[in-house]
Design a protein around this nucleic acid. Structure first.
Lengths: 230, 230
DNA sequence: GCTGCAGTTTGATCAATGTCAAAACGCGAT
DNA sequence: ATCGCGTTTTGACATTGATCAAACTGCAGC
């Protein structure tokens, strides 16, 4: 674990691209950055635990972070996979005091930690910070609702088709997607066991989807759309 | 459908108890209420449709509203059941323009509709309104994450046990809960078919949970907690 | 180019839940 | 108290996905 006060220019650029910081005045941005610490973390590093008292919320600058909860038997269920630009634990800014899930890096990652109290205070003072948080929370809430709907409405191959379509150049013909991370992570994100993801891919092979390593080739995007109608 | 500009005192009291309006200055509250319309709706009334252009967000004052999405075959999946004090479609305040699900009254209900534009403008002016929205969105996001975790981590009997525990006086001995609505609604809220809910109840009978109509008697609350450990 | 290991796929099996149909129940109206 | 209808429960069955184990693959390091 390596904590830097100085941002790499790549991290800085990523930070400024996040919905959270992209529309702020430079004064607000500067004050936020003063309440921030950037850390490089190795793969599989536990960032915080479910139930721990919360002191920060986070923004992923590079790599991926897995948010998950355990049941009492110890089985894990992923709630979300956060990639570059995603924030997590922001819902603790108002009203809550403890983290509600575990957060662990999936691969090595760079993460910005914002002091909750400081940001809370800043949001009360500066309208543009409050507005940025509102936008971020709204967006996050919609995404999470989509997740519930996806779980409740779609079978495994449909979830995978959905995912591919969401990450595809949108024309109707052939296309290719490169997965940004391991398949087991994708499985978790879609609420599936890795084996179920694998079987979903092999069902999609029947309609012209081929998978080699992280590369997914789609013969006909329209055919994928039709999977969602079945 | 009956739209009143004048609030009943019961509706007014409910409105003031919502997390959304309870901490506002009287000036902000008054301006919000000026952007609001209260409507009494019959059972099974469609409030808005998925994909429709959004003009308002809503707060339930009495009765229950079901938010759901359809898959392409027409099967419905509930995303949330909103009861008195709950708000919905607030995530559209920032950034989005269309409703993302259908909303339908489950039984006859009274609903307050807030003009999105007006509230958006007010939030930009008044800090306390922005703060109320932030609290509301945070809370809502946490609830929705709990929903994802519940779906992914728990079996049907565990979800039901969870629900009962959340609505139970919290001592360790016997207790009783009265369901606020039909079982088929509860099934939807828990992401189950009505038959699955029924079978979950009958499995819980083995550990001393008896159900008659809407009344649930729990012999031993601790035994229910133990169900979550299995 | 090999080797070794983590990650992935495949197969067999099982548990959980959805679906459809029919019987039973509960509740409000009479 | 009884009736009648909508809701819930039960049964039989089909489907989906989880689990465990074993085989396979791809890639990093030699």
């Amino acid at each position: 674990m390596n904590t830097n006060l100085k941002l790499s220019s790549r991290d800085h650029a990523m930070l400024m691209k996040t919905p959270f910081m992209s529309n702020l005045s430079s004064a607000s941005a500067a004050r936020l950055m003063a309440a921030m610490t950037v850390t490089s973390l190795p793969a599989r590093h536990l960032i915080f635990r479910d139930g721990e008292t919360a002191s920060s919320f986070f923004c992923v600058l590079s790599g991926y972070v897995r948010l998950y909860r355990l049941n009492r038997e110890g089985r894990e269920a992923d709630l979300r996979i956060c990639g570059p630009g995603d924030t997590f634990a922001e819902c603790l800014l108002f009203g809550n005091r403890r983290y509600r899930y575990h957060a662990q890096t999936a691969e090595s990652a760079t993460v910005a930690a914002f002091d909750l109290k400081a940001v809370r205070a800043l949001a009360e003072q500066e309208r543009d910070v409050a507005a940025a948080l509102l936008t971020m929370l709204s967006q996050h809430l919609l995404t999470t609702l989509d997740c519930v709907a996806n779980d409740r409405l779609h079978t495994a191959p449909q979830r995978v088709a959905n995912y591919i379509l969401a990450h595809c150049p949108v024309d109707g013909g052939p296309a290719a997607v490169r997965l940004p991370f391991q398949k087991s992570l994708l499985a978790g994100q879609l609420g599936l066991a890795p084996e179920a993801l694998s079987r979903a891919f092999s069902k999609l092979r029947e309609i012209g989807v081929t998978v080699r390593g992280r590369i997914i080739q789609v013969g006909d995007v329209q055919a994928l759309r039709d999977v969602l109608r079945t």
